[in-house]
């Protein structure tokens, strides 16, 4: 924590010149992002732009081809395995699917990181787990198995598990996708509350524009491996490029065409007639 104090004014996560390739395709091509402390920073972009990939790069699960990722002053990809694991204990990640361990109950899932990384007694762990479950409103569901949970509940359990070790930051991967309006509202509120109550830094990856703009303090929009727009939600709503406006307002046609590249329709149809 001394390091945090020293680095206090600086952003918690600082990404510089990040390049990352999958096969022949550059997913990221010179990405610069700063994630300030104690805020909710949203990273938005269409599906397949590499939002999940970005979170995995920050968590050290993937290694960039070029560029650096610093978390709390430490270059994630220069750390030894032991140091990386120590850093990860201070990061929580909420996977798109929840990623709960299917052979453990809700209670044991939330208790899992505590049992792995602390020497707390069982009675202490029980209290902590119940408090975390209370925070996400699922104390009553502690004996259920993950297969018995709805998608929204599974995500809330995963959230309780992610905050079990009181991390300094949480990364949310598409927390709203596939949620009904009520669980969506619940999650929106939870993310905001957790961030403000526990002085967490939150990174929220999403393409659900309305919900994201509603809670984010700062937004980055990425497309084609670069940041195309950044600023507060208000700034993004007002101005911005054609592309951003299309994305934010969900217009079917614009700089991102409705049609996948193809020859003219008339040519295609005539072609078929000739054969």
């Amino acid at each position: 924590m001394q390091q945090s104090a020293k680095e206090c004014g600086k952003p918690l996560v600082r990404i510089r010149g990040l390049r990352f390739r999958r096969g022949e395709r550059w997913i990221f091509d010179g990405l610069d992002i700063d994630i300030p402390r104690d805020r909710i920073t949203a990273i938005m972009g269409p599906s397949g732009t590499g939002k999940t990939t970005l979170l995995k790069l920050i968590g050290g699960q993937l290694v960039p081809d070029e560029g650096t990722v610093e978390v709390d002053g430490q270059n994630v990809h220069a750390l030894s395995t032991a140091e990386l694991y120590r850093l990860r204990m201070r990061m929580g990640m909420l996977f798109q699917s929840g990623a709960l361990l299917t052979d453990l109950s809700v209670f044991d899932n939330v208790a899992f990181p505590l049992r792995e990384h602390t020497r707390l007694t069982e009675s202490m762990i029980r209290k902590l787990v119940l408090l975390k479950l209370e925070a996400v409103g699922l104390r009553g569901a502690r004996d259920l198995m993950p297969s018995q949970l709805s998608g929204g509940m599974a995500r809330r359990v995963a959230l309780a598990r992610a905050i079990a070790l009181d991390p300094m930051m949480i990364m949310y991967d598409e927390p709203f996708t596939g949620q009904d309006p009520i669980s969506m509202g619940v999650l929106v509120q939870l993310i905001r509350q957790l961030n403000d109550a526990a002085h967490l830094t939150s990174i929220l990856v999403s393409h659900d524009v309305a919900e994201t703009l509603q809670i984010a303090d700062q937004v980055y929009v990425i497309s084609d491996g670069r940041v195309v727009e950044s600023g507060s939600p208000e700034e993004l709503g007002e101005g911005g490029s054609d592309w951003t406006r299309q994305f934010i307002n969900g217009l079917p046609d614009g700089p991102v065409p409705f049609h996948y590249p193809a020859p003219a329709l008339s040519d295609d149809l005539l072609e078929g007639a000739r054969c």
Binding site: K56, F95, A99
Partner: peptide
């Protein structure tokens, strides 16, 4: 299946190998 459902990734992010 643990890999496909991101449980293994989840363990890694919880600092468990």
């Amino acid at each position: 299946l643990m890999k496909a459902t991101e449980q293994l990734s989840g363990l890694e992010m919880m600092a468990v190998n």
